[in-house]
Write a protein that binds this DNA or RNA. Structure first.
Lengths: 333, 333
DNA sequence: ATGAAAGCGCTAACAT
DNA sequence: ATGTTAGCGCTTTCAT
């Protein structure tokens, strides 16, 4: 059942059917009714490929993230999908992993789909992520369609960044730790992404500005898995620390587990701060003080901006968004 | 840059270019080389819309789930995406919510995209889900393309179900509880989906077969949120129970929190079993005994079967998959 | 092995 | 207000 069939059945031309489908004002109400009736009866659906071919757009947005099974990514994708749906855009999803080659491959594939815009979720796609990573592949994509980074930052024509101010959030969190008497604060991270690096900078600045040394032994890289972190911490019996600042809740919970295993009291013997305010943070005992990076806000701003850009309007290239520290029970300030 | 440009530059016809693109054997190696070179130089990419129009397929699979921000859905989507990518299929994602109207709308929209197959993740799309729900919209979709249910079960032409045997898993878990001396076991659930109902059946069968009464007061419906569950449990001071079987880890952790709040010892005073073996289950204290519903397995079987169906091969309409009970610290059997 | 040409189903400019 | 028609870029049959 195609547009010709409908036209024939309704006794009009295909142009009129097309106009009805697109709700053009240049069709009389009467014929509109008639044509609509015929379409209903035959439950006709315009062929999206043909339409796409003519308009060179299928109203779809590409969403690329390292891995949707990560809680932060998943919630971001969920927010994006809902907001984009409001505007009748579909989402095509691509999980790229974190490796440079795979990220490049992901963008190459997703760009072939002639999407209308591209969203890159996670700071792995940022300009100053893992060292050695090039961002040319992103810049190239931006030559064709607008590219939106969620929690990433990259300067370039047609690329728009919305990100949390992780440096400040980390600075504030670690400062709180120091001001409440902590002296040896462990920095626990699972990546060298743009965002993780900003957190590290905030951590170091807090130490420096409070006259504390920045110690290499107090920077630990691990996996974002509860038991993994607990175990590597237990394995380093020589390592002394009275607080932990983790770049993700999973690692922070690992630190809490470590404290339990060693019979340490939280927050007395060990203070812990996590990141992301995920459901994990209210599962452990005591419950985690954590940084809420306001993922929903980032997504909303991104979608709003995207719709403007697609209409040809101007929007800021860069939007920093403040995080908020959610104080629960693993800290005493 | 389209197929005509390439043809001109390579000094061949568009038919030849098309053949090269599709790696047809009916082109001489020599011209293949030449054409490929020209394509590379101009980094030509065939227009997917035009191709879709001709072939009536764009090699995309529709994935619909209630909400990707849910950990179980997110991991399923992640598995599916990866496996489908192997076969050069793209994924278009739709989060439908749980309401009948929205689910119908979701399928209607996703079907318009002329996807090659449809995956429905979560038992909300099953045949015996929320009462009053019709499954006609799924049956209708299956008239056009194969439909695959993950953790759902529905009989119908062209629909394929892969699901965990939740009834048995629940039966085994609750039986363990009873045999270790529990007498008043609270059933805690957040939905009336197909899967939740199977769990309830297993729970009731275990009680019955052990000569215990099935009590309405011991079936509680809540949200899958830690604090929410803790609070409603605390609010029902009159409700007495010595064990909890929850249909999702979040609620189980809520029960653990409740025990803490009331100064009860786990598992001595209260035994708890969760479901899904999510990261949450290793965050709480003590760590959760939980049912692993092997989501990855369901996804793998689904993708394998889908590829066969798309090739016209036969596959079983229904594949039940066993769950495994992961015993940790909130039970004493 | 290669080319010419007819669709695929739609949109939009142009004509009436 | 409605119809006619030329693309959009590809695949595929039919010639050669």
């Amino acid at each position: 059942m195609n547009i010709y069939d409908i036209a024939k059945l309704a006794g009009v031309s295909i142009a009129t059917v097309s106009r009805v489908v697109n709700d053009s004002p240049r069709v009389s109400e009467k014929t509109k009714q008639k044509v609509r009736a015929v379409m209903e009866e035959n439950n006709y659906t315009p062929n999206v490929f043909a339409r796409g071919l003519g308009l060179d757009s299928m109203k779809t947005i590409g969403i690329v993230c390292p891995d949707v099974s990560d809680a932060y990514m998943a919630s971001a994708v969920s927010f994006l999908e809902h907001r984009l749906r409001e505007y009748d855009y579909d989402c095509i999803l691509y999980c790229s992993g974190n490796e440079q080659k795979k990220k490049e491959k992901a963008l190459e594939l997703v760009m072939k789909k002639r999407i209308d815009a591209l969203v890159l979720v996670g700071s792995t796609y940022a300009g100053e992520g893992e060292k050695g990573d090039s961002v040319d592949y992103i810049i190239n994509a931006a030559e064709k369609i607008p590219v939106f980074l969620i929690n990433g930052k990259l300067e370039g024509e047609n690329v728009y960044s919305v990100y949390s101010t992780d440096e400040v959030a980390a600075y504030d969190a670690v400062s709180g730790l120091i001001e409440s008497g902590r002296r040896r604060i462990l920095f626990l991270s699972d990546s060298h992404s743009f965002s993780a690096n900003r957190k590290l900078e905030g951590y170091e600045r807090a130490l420096r500005e409070h006259g504390l040394p920045v110690l290499g032994e107090l920077k630990l890289y691990a996996k974002n898995q509860v038991h993994y972190v607990r175990d590597i911490l237990l394995a380093r019996r020589a390592l002394v620390f009275d607080a932990v600042f983790a770049t993700d809740d999973g690692m922070a919970v690992g630190a809490v587990k470590y404290a339990h295993a060693r019979g340490m009291e939280i927050p007395k013997d060990l203070a812990v701060i996590g990141y992301n305010n995920s459901e994990l943070s209210v599962c452990c005992e005591p419950e985690l003080t954590t940084v809420d990076n306001t993922g929903e806000k980032l997504c909303n701003i991104t979608v709003d901006n995207m719709m403007k850009v697609l209409k040809g309007e101007e929007v800021p290239r860069e939007v920093p968004v403040k995080c908020v520290l959610v104080k629960r029970c693993t800290t005493d300030f």
